[in-house]
Amino acid sequence: MTQDTQPALASDALNRLFRDARTVHAFQPVPVSDETIRQLYELLKWGPTAFNAQPARYLFLRSPEAKARLRPALSAGNVAQTEAAAVTVIVAQDSRFYEHLPQQFPAYDAKPLFEGNAALAEATAFRNSSLQGAYLILAARSLGLDSGAQSGFDPGKVNAEFFPDGRYQVNFIINLGVADPAGIHPRGPRLDFDQVAQIL
Protein backbone atom coordinates (compact mmCIF):
# COMPACT_ATOMS: atom_id res chain seq x y z
CA MET A 1 0.00 0.00 0.00
CA THR A 2 1.40 3.36 -1.00
CA GLN A 3 1.24 6.44 1.18
CA ASP A 4 -1.72 7.82 -0.81
CA THR A 5 -3.78 4.60 -0.83
CA GLN A 6 -6.91 4.63 1.29
CA PRO A 7 -7.34 1.79 3.79
CA ALA A 8 -9.49 -1.14 2.72
CA LEU A 9 -13.05 -1.37 3.99
CA ALA A 10 -13.57 -3.46 7.08
CA SER A 11 -14.20 -7.15 6.48
CA ASP A 12 -17.85 -6.93 7.57
CA ALA A 13 -18.49 -4.25 4.93
CA LEU A 14 -16.85 -6.39 2.25
CA ASN A 15 -18.94 -9.35 3.40
CA ARG A 16 -22.15 -7.33 3.00
CA LEU A 17 -21.24 -6.02 -0.43
CA PHE A 18 -19.69 -9.17 -1.89
CA ARG A 19 -18.84 -12.31 0.08
CA ASP A 20 -22.12 -12.91 1.92
CA ALA A 21 -24.48 -11.24 -0.55
CA ARG A 22 -26.83 -13.38 -2.61
CA THR A 23 -29.21 -12.96 -5.49
CA VAL A 24 -32.54 -13.08 -3.69
CA HIS A 25 -35.62 -14.86 -5.05
CA ALA A 26 -37.96 -14.49 -2.05
CA PHE A 27 -38.74 -11.46 0.08
CA GLN A 28 -40.32 -10.67 3.42
CA PRO A 29 -43.24 -8.18 3.50
CA VAL A 30 -41.07 -5.28 4.66
CA PRO A 31 -41.69 -1.95 2.89
CA VAL A 32 -39.02 0.32 1.44
CA SER A 33 -39.66 4.02 1.98
CA ASP A 34 -39.38 6.93 -0.44
CA GLU A 35 -36.50 8.18 1.69
CA THR A 36 -34.57 4.93 1.27
CA ILE A 37 -35.17 4.94 -2.49
CA ARG A 38 -33.80 8.48 -2.68
CA GLN A 39 -30.81 7.53 -0.51
CA LEU A 40 -30.18 4.65 -2.88
CA TYR A 41 -30.03 6.97 -5.87
CA GLU A 42 -27.86 9.50 -4.01
CA LEU A 43 -25.28 6.73 -3.60
CA LEU A 44 -25.43 5.06 -6.99
CA LYS A 45 -25.25 8.32 -8.95
CA TRP A 46 -21.58 8.74 -8.01
CA GLY A 47 -20.50 5.61 -9.88
CA PRO A 48 -18.39 6.48 -12.92
CA THR A 49 -19.76 6.44 -16.46
CA ALA A 50 -18.14 7.34 -19.78
CA PHE A 51 -18.17 11.12 -20.32
CA ASN A 52 -20.16 11.33 -17.06
CA ALA A 53 -23.08 10.50 -19.35
CA GLN A 54 -25.27 8.71 -16.77
CA PRO A 55 -27.57 7.14 -19.38
CA ALA A 56 -29.54 4.96 -16.96
CA ARG A 57 -33.12 5.83 -16.09
CA TYR A 58 -35.02 4.17 -13.24
CA LEU A 59 -38.65 3.30 -12.62
CA PHE A 60 -39.28 2.19 -9.03
CA LEU A 61 -42.42 0.05 -9.06
CA ARG A 62 -43.84 -0.25 -5.56
CA SER A 63 -47.62 -0.15 -5.81
CA PRO A 64 -49.68 -3.24 -6.69
CA GLU A 65 -51.02 -1.34 -9.69
CA ALA A 66 -47.53 -0.67 -11.05
CA LYS A 67 -46.48 -4.28 -10.48
CA ALA A 68 -49.62 -5.43 -12.30
CA ARG A 69 -48.54 -3.48 -15.38
CA LEU A 70 -45.20 -5.32 -15.37
CA ARG A 71 -46.57 -8.80 -14.72
CA PRO A 72 -47.51 -9.69 -18.34
CA ALA A 73 -43.92 -9.09 -19.45
CA LEU A 74 -42.33 -11.37 -16.84
CA SER A 75 -41.33 -14.95 -17.37
CA ALA A 76 -43.43 -17.32 -15.24
CA GLY A 77 -40.57 -18.04 -12.85
CA ASN A 78 -40.11 -14.37 -12.00
CA VAL A 79 -43.69 -13.40 -11.18
CA ALA A 80 -43.87 -14.50 -7.53
CA GLN A 81 -40.54 -12.96 -6.52
CA THR A 82 -41.37 -9.70 -8.27
CA GLU A 83 -44.74 -9.46 -6.57
CA ALA A 84 -43.14 -10.20 -3.18
CA ALA A 85 -40.34 -7.64 -3.54
CA ALA A 86 -40.91 -4.32 -1.80
CA VAL A 87 -39.73 -2.47 -4.90
CA THR A 88 -38.99 -3.57 -8.44
CA VAL A 89 -36.66 -1.30 -10.39
CA ILE A 90 -36.77 -1.13 -14.16
CA VAL A 91 -33.29 -0.03 -15.18
CA ALA A 92 -33.56 1.58 -18.61
CA GLN A 93 -31.24 3.50 -20.90
CA ASP A 94 -31.89 6.88 -22.46
CA SER A 95 -31.20 6.72 -26.18
CA ARG A 96 -30.62 10.47 -26.21
CA PHE A 97 -28.45 10.68 -23.09
CA TYR A 98 -26.04 12.87 -25.03
CA GLU A 99 -28.43 15.81 -24.82
CA HIS A 100 -27.25 16.24 -21.22
CA LEU A 101 -23.53 16.14 -22.04
CA PRO A 102 -23.04 19.93 -22.32
CA GLN A 103 -23.95 20.18 -18.63
CA GLN A 104 -22.62 16.85 -17.40
CA PHE A 105 -19.34 16.85 -19.33
CA PRO A 106 -18.14 20.44 -19.80
CA ALA A 107 -14.53 19.47 -20.60
CA TYR A 108 -15.32 19.70 -24.32
CA ASP A 109 -18.28 19.29 -26.68
CA ALA A 110 -18.78 15.52 -26.74
CA LYS A 111 -22.41 15.65 -27.84
CA PRO A 112 -21.63 15.45 -31.60
CA LEU A 113 -19.74 12.16 -31.04
CA PHE A 114 -23.03 10.46 -30.24
CA GLU A 115 -25.67 12.64 -31.87
CA GLY A 116 -24.57 11.57 -35.35
CA ASN A 117 -23.60 7.98 -34.52
CA ALA A 118 -26.55 5.85 -33.43
CA ALA A 119 -24.49 2.68 -33.04
CA LEU A 120 -21.99 4.36 -30.73
CA ALA A 121 -24.76 6.00 -28.73
CA GLU A 122 -26.58 2.68 -28.28
CA ALA A 123 -23.44 0.81 -27.24
CA THR A 124 -22.47 3.56 -24.81
CA ALA A 125 -25.96 3.75 -23.32
CA PHE A 126 -26.16 -0.02 -22.87
CA ARG A 127 -22.69 -0.44 -21.37
CA ASN A 128 -22.97 2.44 -18.96
CA SER A 129 -26.57 1.84 -17.88
CA SER A 130 -25.50 -1.73 -17.11
CA LEU A 131 -22.76 -0.33 -14.91
CA GLN A 132 -25.24 1.93 -13.19
CA GLY A 133 -27.55 -1.01 -12.52
CA ALA A 134 -24.63 -2.77 -10.84
CA TYR A 135 -23.95 0.34 -8.77
CA LEU A 136 -27.62 0.24 -7.72
CA ILE A 137 -27.20 -3.32 -6.44
CA LEU A 138 -24.14 -2.38 -4.38
CA ALA A 139 -25.83 0.77 -3.08
CA ALA A 140 -28.86 -1.30 -2.03
CA ARG A 141 -26.63 -3.76 -0.19
CA SER A 142 -24.84 -0.91 1.55
CA LEU A 143 -28.22 0.35 2.82
CA GLY A 144 -29.17 -3.06 4.18
CA LEU A 145 -31.41 -4.15 1.31
CA ASP A 146 -31.27 -7.40 -0.61
CA SER A 147 -31.60 -7.61 -4.37
CA GLY A 148 -32.38 -9.96 -7.20
CA ALA A 149 -31.50 -8.91 -10.73
CA GLN A 150 -33.36 -10.55 -13.59
CA SER A 151 -33.40 -10.65 -17.35
CA GLY A 152 -36.31 -13.09 -17.60
CA PHE A 153 -38.83 -10.74 -19.23
CA ASP A 154 -40.03 -9.59 -22.62
CA PRO A 155 -38.26 -6.30 -23.38
CA GLY A 156 -40.75 -5.36 -26.08
CA LYS A 157 -43.66 -5.63 -23.66
CA VAL A 158 -41.84 -3.64 -20.96
CA ASN A 159 -40.97 -0.89 -23.41
CA ALA A 160 -44.48 -0.76 -24.86
CA GLU A 161 -46.04 -0.50 -21.40
CA PHE A 162 -43.65 1.89 -19.68
CA PHE A 163 -41.71 3.68 -22.44
CA PRO A 164 -44.10 3.96 -25.39
CA ASP A 165 -42.40 6.99 -26.94
CA GLY A 166 -39.30 4.88 -27.62
CA ARG A 167 -36.71 7.18 -26.08
CA TYR A 168 -36.00 4.87 -23.14
CA GLN A 169 -35.33 1.15 -23.51
CA VAL A 170 -35.33 -1.39 -20.69
CA ASN A 171 -31.93 -2.90 -19.85
CA PHE A 172 -32.76 -5.20 -16.92
CA ILE A 173 -34.90 -5.44 -13.79
CA ILE A 174 -33.90 -5.54 -10.13
CA ASN A 175 -36.09 -6.63 -7.22
CA LEU A 176 -35.31 -4.98 -3.88
CA GLY A 177 -36.38 -5.68 -0.31
CA VAL A 178 -35.56 -7.78 2.72
CA ALA A 179 -34.72 -11.37 1.90
CA ASP A 180 -36.79 -14.28 3.12
CA PRO A 181 -34.09 -16.68 4.37
CA ALA A 182 -36.14 -19.64 3.13
CA GLY A 183 -35.62 -18.42 -0.42
CA ILE A 184 -31.85 -18.03 -0.32
CA HIS A 185 -30.12 -20.79 -2.25
CA PRO A 186 -26.63 -22.10 -1.46
CA ARG A 187 -23.90 -20.03 -3.03
CA GLY A 188 -22.67 -21.32 -6.37
CA PRO A 189 -18.93 -21.72 -6.92
CA ARG A 190 -16.88 -18.97 -8.51
CA LEU A 191 -14.06 -19.38 -11.01
CA ASP A 192 -10.56 -19.07 -9.60
CA PHE A 193 -8.31 -16.17 -10.49
CA ASP A 194 -6.05 -18.27 -12.71
CA GLN A 195 -9.05 -19.44 -14.75
CA VAL A 196 -10.15 -15.96 -15.72
CA ALA A 197 -7.31 -13.49 -15.25
CA GLN A 198 -3.71 -12.75 -16.08
CA ILE A 199 -1.26 -10.21 -14.79
CA LEU A 200 0.98 -8.97 -17.59
Rank of each mutant, 00 (worst) to 15 (best):
D4S: 14
Q6T: 08
Q6E: 07
P7E: 07
S11I: 13
N15Y: 10
R16A: 10
R16S: 03
L17Q: 01
T23I: 13
V24A: 04
V24P: 03
Q28F: 01
Q28L: 13
P29F: 07
V30S: 01
P31A: 10
P31L: 02
V32T: 09
V32P: 01
T36S: 00
R38N: 00
Y41H: 10
L44T: 00
W46H: 14
P48Y: 06
T49H: 06
F51H: 14
F51I: 14
F51N: 11
Q54E: 15
Q54I: 06
Q54K: 11
Q54C: 06
P55C: 14
A56Y: 00
A56M: 06
L59M: 15
L59V: 15
F60E: 04
L61A: 02
R62L: 01
P64T: 08
P64G: 07
A66G: 10
L70D: 06
R71H: 05
L74F: 06
L74H: 06
S75D: 11
A76E: 09
A76Q: 09
A80H: 02
Q81P: 05
T82W: 02
T82F: 03
A85F: 01
T88E: 03
T88D: 04
I90W: 07
A92E: 10
R96N: 13
Y98Q: 09
L101Y: 04
Q103E: 09
Q104F: 15
F105M: 04
A107H: 09
D109W: 02
A110H: 07
K111S: 11
P112R: 05
G116T: 12
N117I: 10
N117D: 15
L120V: 06
E122K: 14
A123M: 12
A123D: 13
T124P: 06
A125C: 11
A125M: 13
N128D: 15
N128R: 04
S130I: 03
S130Y: 05
A134E: 00
L136A: 01
L136V: 01
I137P: 00
L138H: 01
A139L: 01
A140F: 01
A140Q: 02
D146F: 06
D146Q: 02
A149Y: 00
S151I: 13
F153Q: 06
G156C: 08
K157H: 08
K157Y: 03
V158L: 11
V158F: 12
F163Q: 07
G166C: 13
R167Q: 15
F172A: 03
F172K: 00
I173F: 04
N175L: 00
P181V: 03
P181F: 08
I184T: 09
I184A: 04
D192G: 11
F193M: 05
F193I: 04
D194E: 13
Q195A: 14
Q195R: 08
V196E: 11
A197S: 15
Q198H: 04
L200K: 07
